[in-house]
Amino acid sequence: MNERQIMTSDEVRRAIARIAHEIGERNGGVTEVVLVGIYRRGIPLAKRIAAAIQSIEHKTVPVGALDITLYRDDLEIRGPSTHIQHTNIPGDITGKIVVLVDDVLFTGRTIRAALDALTDLGRPERIQLAVLVDRGHRELPIRADFVGKNVPTASSEDVAVRLNEIDGGDDAVMIMRGAV
C-alpha cells in the first residue's frame, strides 16, 4: 500500500479559513448560521470553522454534533456498529441556516442520512454542506456548497483525513492506494 499526501496542515488551515469566509459571504453574515459536524472528523472541523468565523466576523456561531448511525441505509450490508455517538444540537434549528460539516464527500450517502436526521430535529430555513475534501464518485444527487479541495480519485483508493484533535500530530490529507 502506498500513500500520497494531497494536503498539508497549512493547506488544511487555509481551506478552513476560506470556507469560513465563504459561509459569511453566501449567507450575508452569520447571525442565523449553526454549524453541525458529522461524527467523527466533522466535529473538530466544525469547531475550527466556528473559530475562524469568530476571528473574521467577531460573532460566535453555535456548533452541534450529529451522529447518523441510526439513519444509515447499509445496516443489512455492514451490520450494526458498536458505537453510537451522542447527537447534540444547540437549540432549535427551525428557521436557522444549518451548515453540515464533514471531512470527505464521497458517495453522498452519509449526507443523505444527515439530511434525514436534521429534518427529524427541526425545519431549518436552509441546509448547506461544507467538506474538507470532495473526492467524487457520487451515488446520489448531492453536492457540497463549500469545498476545501476537489480531489479526483479512483474508487479503489481511500482518502484519509488526519486531524490533530483526533489523530494527534500534524493535520494531513492522504490518498491511500490499494487500501481495499
Binding site: L70, I84, H86
Partner: peptide
Amino acid sequence: LDVLDAAVSMKEILGRSVPQVPIL
C-alpha cells in the same frame, strides 16, 4: 458497557419532539 453506551444515545432520541429514527 457497549450496550449501556448505546443506550445513552438511544435515550437522547426518546427526549426529542419527534422520537423516531428509521434504522429498523
